[in-house]
């Protein structure tokens, strides 16, 4: 999953550095992720994983690192499969 997230970050993240240089647990905001780019990234994730982000996960924390994004996506995939 993390490689898909990295691809989407490259495409939508508008980061000043290469995504390859960012560790899975590194702070994406410190790496230059803007709130606009995080929304574009979210749209990309919704499309790629066929999910919809619930209101409770629409916050800075869900997008703070590649690991955090992966955790959010897994959480959504699980609950949306149950439902």
């Amino acid at each position: 999953m993390n490689s898909t997230i990295r691809d989407l970050l490259t495409k939508h993240g508008r980061l000043p550095v290469s995504v390859d240089t960012i560790a899975d647990d590194a702070d994406l905001y410190e790496a230059g992720l803007s709130s606009f780019a995080s929304v574009q990234l979210m749209l990309g994730l919704e499309e790629a994983f066929d999910i919809e982000f619930p209101e409770t996960l629409l916050n800075r924390k869900s997008f703070s690192s590649i690991n955090a994004i992966a955790a959010s996506v897994s959480q959504i995939t699980e609950t949306q499969q149950v439902a």
Binding site: L15, P16, V17, E30, A31, G32, L33, S34
Partner: peptide, 10 residues
């Protein structure tokens, strides 16, 4: 910015 090497939004 936090540091001279930080991106504009940090």
């Amino acid at each position: 910015r936090r540091h001279k090497d930080s991106p504009p939004s940090d």
